[in-house]
Design a protein around this nucleic acid. Structure first.
Lengths: 119, 119
DNA sequence: GTTGTGGTTCAATAATCATTGAACAAGGGA
DNA sequence: TCCCTTGTTCAATGATTATTGAACCACAAC
């Protein structure tokens, strides 16, 4: 595919764009799987969204600087730009990915001490 | 003011909502100033947005679980729910606030080694 | 060449977001 | 009491988002 597929360089990665990209559950799952399993083809994520919609979400991850997309024959390989993001926003990706796994796990069992805590 | 001003309890704070709330620069500045200076009145942030608009942004921070709003006489006091957010998503707030300060600082001086790197 | 597969682009949609001005509500003085 | 300050709610607006289907493009195999 000829379209240059623009990626922001490390210094251009913006916090707003990164947080916005990570605020979507679908995109967070993609980032998480890339973080665990390394490089994957686009089609590996077709279970999370339709072809067109997936393309949209991947473009958002790419333009935010979270993901690199490399053409390989007829398909495209995705990889997480973990080093770039870590260099720019230290600890951010780690914190989000760690939290993403637990998110919504238990309904926060009502213990005696939490009975009337937070509003 | 009588309206109960709903706050989510700690276990209800959702990652998507937190990231979404923090993805806006205005809201990030507010969170940062609360983190540095502690409790502040709403009106302390009128320099960042109009009265109505500020009320909107504060409501988003509140419903996301990032901020607590407490009526005090004729004004309202804002405080960061740093402990709740930290308990739920460890390291997240720290990472965002640390990065927020540096964001967009230097225009990334073009060194020889960065000349044609990314993208 | 033709066909198939992997992905993107385009146009359209419904929903949400950010921003504004006008109106309203609840204290706290004078 | 009448104001003034602080802040919210409402309605409207323009911009952006997420999602879809149809069309398209590039490569690879036949």
């Amino acid at each position: 595919m000829p379209k240059p597929l623009h990626h922001p360089k490390r210094s251009q990665i913006a916090l707003s764009a990164v947080l916005e990209a990570l605020s979507d559950p679908i995109r967070r799952v993609i980032v998480q799987r890339l973080s665990h399993n390394g490089e994957r083809s686009c089609s590996a994520f077709l279970s999370y969204a339709s072809k067109t919609n997936l393309s949209y979400h991947l473009a958002r991850l790419r333009t935010a600087g979270l993901v690199r997309i490399r053409p390989e024959g007829t398909c495209r390989m995705l990889s997480l730009r973990a080093d770039d993001v870590e260099a720019r926003f230290p600890g951010l990706l780690r914190a989000v990915l760690a939290s993403a796994g637990v998110e919504g796990a238990r309904p926060a069992r009502r213990t005696r001490s939490s009975r009337g805590s937070s509003s």
